[in-house]
Amino acid sequence: MKQLDTELSKQFTLSDYVEQRPELAFVTVEKQQLVPLLTYLRDTKKYTHLVTLTAVDWLEVNQFQLTYLLHNYETHTDIGIRVKLDRDNPVMETIHHLWEQARVYQRELHEMFGIDFPGSPGVEEPMILEGWQGPPVMRRDFDTAKYSLETYDHRKRDTREPEIYMKEKLYPED
């Protein structure tokens, strides 16, 4: 895998190479170079299978990380391509022309993270959530427990921490 990274580095600006296992590595690429890189990997390096496309919200550094995971059926190796997006303006090029199922992933990311993929068919349509009016739910600043407690009717809990309860009961003055 290291060899592949070296080879790719000649053409693309790569960083943060991590080899998790001998057959799995992750690498970060510049946003503009993603589609050429994926095309290159698919057509030349036989990374023909798009395993998944997902996003990680790094709220602390105000970034989204998109991970494109590709698999090579001949060498049985995977490479994860990371792309960092600005969290305030998350727009990414679509790759649905490379893999058909990518449009579904992109549609989901658009709905769940609010990442836009202009040109991806049907990306604007709500997919899973119907009539959702809040912020994109998978963003880390959306607190699902709070939302749930506010929106739905919960049975009021009646629990006590042993430590606090014993203090109240056994030595309230101390």
Binding site: R157, D158, T159, R160, P162, Y165
Partner: peptide, 15 residues
């Protein structure tokens, strides 16, 4: 939920 009970013993939080 940890709820209080009447019967307790030593080394027992009573919950």
């Amino acid at each position: 939920d940890m709820v209080p009970v009447s019967e307790t013993k030593d080394g027992d939080s009573g919950l």
